[in-house]
Amino acid sequence: MPKPSHLIRASTLALVLLSSACAVAADAPLWEFGAGVGLLSIPDYRGSDQRQTYALPIPYLVYRGEFLKIDRDKVRGVFYQDAHTEWDISLAASVPVKSDDNRARRDMPDLDPTVEIGPQWSYKHRRSWGDITLRLPLRKVLAVDFPNVRDVGTVFTPTLAIDRDNHPWPGWHASMSTGPIFGDKDYFAYYYKVDSRYGTANRPAWDAKSGYGGWQLTLTLAKRFKKIWVGGFLRADHFGGASFEDSPLVRQQTSWTGGVGVSWIFLESAQRVPMSR
């Protein structure tokens, strides 16, 4: 049974991931609030052959302010925006891993949950059938074990996304995003380094280096039914050619993450704002 603190962290991760599937209207309330439930299945870490499945509460929060925006793309603070480009803040998160519950990491230190934060530049090209967006986020990665927070590296994840409304069925929003992952030595060492003191016959010592960290493909689908929102996502990570590919902690070359959720929106502001995608 997952600990309550793990469920809170998993809920935060699910909110970040499932929010990428959230659909919005052309004219909408300034803010909306609700609650729901979700199911999240996620590997212990990218490349692990073990996973955790969480059934958990998911808050539904949308805010469409001039600078702070929480919507289907992400939680972001917008610093600059014009017809095609945008500067904002990018966020990501990961769940904790208890090493004694993972065969590859047994007797090694636990993996604390991480929070990733940093600037992001985006360029959006609007077409009649949907939007094509290039996103270039550079994030600092922080491992969190309250009250301690420590820097565990930097990650760069350029992404090309295609968003379509009313696809594949009327009222639905579909999105596909894909791109490589690059990280520095500290980032990859946090997940894949094996110190000599933790080396075994089946897990030799291994040191990390910076560079290419694999490729991601994410598919999302969502729909808003008046006061009910439903959505889901599926993400594939492939590690062929990654700088950590030969780490003994990498047990498979492809990892899968998926989740579904449903929320009831029970509060919204009377003020309405124009909505641009």
Rank of each mutant, 00 (worst) to 15 (best):
I89L: 15
I89S: 11
S90M: 10
A92S: 15
V95K: 06
P96G: 08
S99Q: 11
D100E: 14
D100S: 14
N102R: 10
N102Y: 11
R103I: 11
R103Q: 14
R105E: 09
M108L: 09
M108G: 04
P109D: 08
P109I: 06
D110R: 11
L111A: 07
D112C: 09
D112F: 07
P113R: 09
T114R: 10
T114Y: 00
E116L: 13
Q120W: 03
Q120F: 04
W121C: 00
Y123S: 01
Y123R: 07
K124W: 00
H125L: 12
H125K: 10
R126N: 09
S128M: 12
W129E: 10
G130P: 05
T133D: 02
T133E: 14
L134C: 05
L134H: 02
L136E: 05
R139P: 02
V141F: 01
L142N: 04
L142M: 13
A143Y: 03
V144D: 03
V144R: 01
V144I: 15
D145L: 08
F146T: 08
F146K: 10
P147R: 05
R150H: 15
D151F: 14
D151A: 02
D151V: 04
V152K: 01
V155L: 10
V155M: 11
V155F: 02
T159G: 00
A161T: 10
A161C: 08
A161H: 00
I162K: 05
R164L: 13
N166W: 00
N166R: 05
H167K: 07
P168W: 07
W169E: 11
P170G: 06
G171W: 02
G171V: 06
W172V: 10
W172Q: 08
W172D: 03
H173M: 12
S175C: 05
S177K: 15
T178G: 13
